[in-house]
């Protein structure tokens, strides 16, 4: 049974995007349901980041549509995004988490409670009063995750959350993402790291040169990819 206030499923219809006269997405269509993480994979430059920005509403579609199962402002309020390079405010760790909560109109006391809880989740509670921009790369990405999680979004977009992290920091971030997914947050993330996709994905969208070549449950996709480009990518032969 679907909760009455859900914004899912997300329907993407013939979505196009062009910039500087270059077509980046050539009309992609798919739908995303509640459940396990949806992982968008594909080589560098395939259009993964652009796709996520379109889904999150940061870019206007050049054609087609992004349809949520709720009115646009409700849908906007129920989703959050973490960027490839975390954008941290020049404030303390705790203030970073509290900032979007204040924007969302959450009372100060509740804000503090949620911030504490989110920092606990990512293991940064001890650093709450530290300036955010003094954290290490892995800590910064965890803080960005905590900040998004504190909003309790129904859908959380993650764009290459581990792109510039070392293996141990990557592992920590993946554990946090998995924990959020278990708590019922719908994760929609991009990665070009096949191992990460295997560890996290419930389903896979394979994007190649602005086209969705395959959209399949993860076990099926990794066992027997249908598209030849997907197979090549999984073998490490497809660089772009």
């Amino acid at each position: 049974m679907r909760a009455p206030d859900t914004i899912l499923p997300l329907l993407v219809e013939a979505l196009r995007f062009a910039a500087g006269g270059v077509e980046i997405l050539h009309g992609v269509s798919f739908s995303i349901e509640a459940g396990q993480p949806t992982v968008v994979i594909g080589p560098n430059g395939a259009g993964k980041s652009v796709l996520l920005r379109l889904l999150h509403g940061l870019l206007p579609p050049g054609g087609g549509a992004v349809r949520w199962a709720a009115a646009p402002d409700r849908a906007a309020a129920r989703q959050a995004m973490v960027f490839q390079r975390p954008v941290l405010l020049r404030r303390s760790v705790a203030a970073n988490v509290a900032y979007p909560l204040a924007l969302a109109g959450i009372a100060p006391r509740e804000r503090a409670r949620r911030a504490e809880e989110a920092l606990d989740l990512v293991g940064l509670a001890a650093l709450a009063e530290r300036p955010a921009r003094r954290l290490s790369g892995g800590e910064q990405q965890r803080l960005a995750l905590a900040r998004a999680a504190a909003l309790r979004p129904e859908v959380l977009f993650l764009d290459e959350p581990c792109a510039s992290l070392d293996p141990s920091a990557t592992r920590t971030v993946e554990e946090i993402v998995a924990a959020l997914a278990r708590r019922g947050t719908k994760i929609v993330m991009t990665t070009h790291d096949i191992g990460q996709a295997r560890r996290l994905a419930g389903e896979v969208i394979f994007l190649h040169r602005g086209r969705v070549l395959e959209h399949a449950p993860a076990p099926r996709f990794f066992a027997a990819p249908e598209a030849p480009e997907a197979a090549a990518f999984l073998q490490g032969d497809l660089v772009w």
């Binding site: 999150h56 309020a77 979007p100 969302a104």
Partner: peptide, 12 residues
């Protein structure tokens, strides 16, 4: 330039 996208994501 650095903040714009993140703030928009927060609905600001």
């Amino acid at each position: 330039e650095e903040y714009a996208e993140q703030l928009r994501s927060f609905g600001a």
